[in-house]
């Protein structure tokens, strides 16, 4: 039995391969087989290869690109698609466990399908260490499948530390109180070479740009230290913190969910505590 996998060079692809092997011997379609990126053409290539090989299932990494191509494949083949699975067991029906709410909730589900389409949530499954699967032969894409394709790329203007890659993040929530209130957050971030983050309450109020927002509908971060100042710790904020090594919560409410889910806490008014930390760092230099 053959299983088809949409592959690129990422760890997430090799994690998808781990689950795919349970469904057969893998063959691959490469994400960069069509350049510039044209997701309908990739979906068409997967549909055709799946038919030709009589594939038992099609897998991809649950990345933006992976989910996008699988959704298009699902639409054109009229098959159900289970996104962001962390386990998948062959059978009729196939049993899967998948992430909901950006990872704050797990769903056990049955996938009733002659050819299950499954994406694998990144960093939930070990990486495959076996040989790279062989690529399938692809026909040139049809004109209609190239209507949607990348025609240009623009780079961000801001030269600051990128949130997704920052080693340290000083993040502020509604408790910071105002746009101007972020001066003390920025000062501490500057001393630590950290990126500034924030909660959705802050972006909705227009105090910070959305590119600073951490969470389910913001950026997922993975710093060594995340300093959360005046953030309550709603599940949608915590969904962005799964990769954080250490969390320090500063909050006036010792029962705030973030205070209960942190590694370190300081209780009290952030408007006194944050400047005191900055002063202490300066004093020791």
């Amino acid at each position: 039995m053959t299983v088809l996998v949409l592959m690129d060079e990422s760890d997430a692809s090799r994690q998808a391969l781990t689950l795919a092997r349970k469904f057969g011997d893998p063959r691959s379609v490469r994400m960069d087989a069509i350049e510039p990126f044209a997701p309908d053409a990739l979906a068409a290539a997967l549909a055709q290869a799946a038919d030709e090989l009589n594939a038992s299932a099609v897998f991809a990494a649950g990345t933006d690109r992976g989910n996008e191509v699988m959704a298009r494949l699902a639409a054109r083949t009229g098959l159900p698609f289970a996104a962001n699975c962390i386990s998948a067991t062959p059978g009729e029906p196939v049993s899967v466990t998948r992430l909901r709410w950006g990872g704050s909730l797990l769903e056990e589900a049955r996938l009733h399908s002659p050819r299950p389409l499954i994406s694998v949530a990144p960093h939930t499954v070990p990486e495959d260490t076996g040989p790279r699967p062989q690529d399938v032969d692809m026909k040139p894409p049809a004109e209609a499948d190239l209507v949607v394709r990348v025609v240009d790329h623009v780079s961000p203007r801001n030269g600051g530390v990128s949130l997704a890659e920052a080693k340290v993040i000083v993040s502020g929530g509604r408790g910071v109180g105002s746009k101007e209130g972020f001066a003390i957050i920025e000062d501490l971030a500057g001393l630590l070479g950290a990126a500034v983050g924030c909660s959705r309450a802050v972006t909705s109020a227009g105090w910070r740009p959305h590119s600073d927002q951490v969470g389910q509908t913001g950026t997922k971060v993975a710093p060594d230290v995340y300093i959360a100042c005046g953030i309550s710790g709603a599940t949608q904020h915590m969904a962005g913190l799964k990769g954080a090594k250490r969390i320090l919560a500063i909050n006036s409410d010792p029962q705030a969910p973030l205070m209960l889910n942190a590694d370190y806490t300081v209780t009290g008014d952030l408007k006194e505590i944050v400047p005191a930390i900055s002063a202490e760092i300066r004093k020791r230099r």
Partner: peptide, 13 residues
Amino acid sequence: RRAESLGAGAAAA
């Protein structure tokens, strides 16, 4: 995670 308290207020700096 098991939160370790580093104290309260500016004295925790």
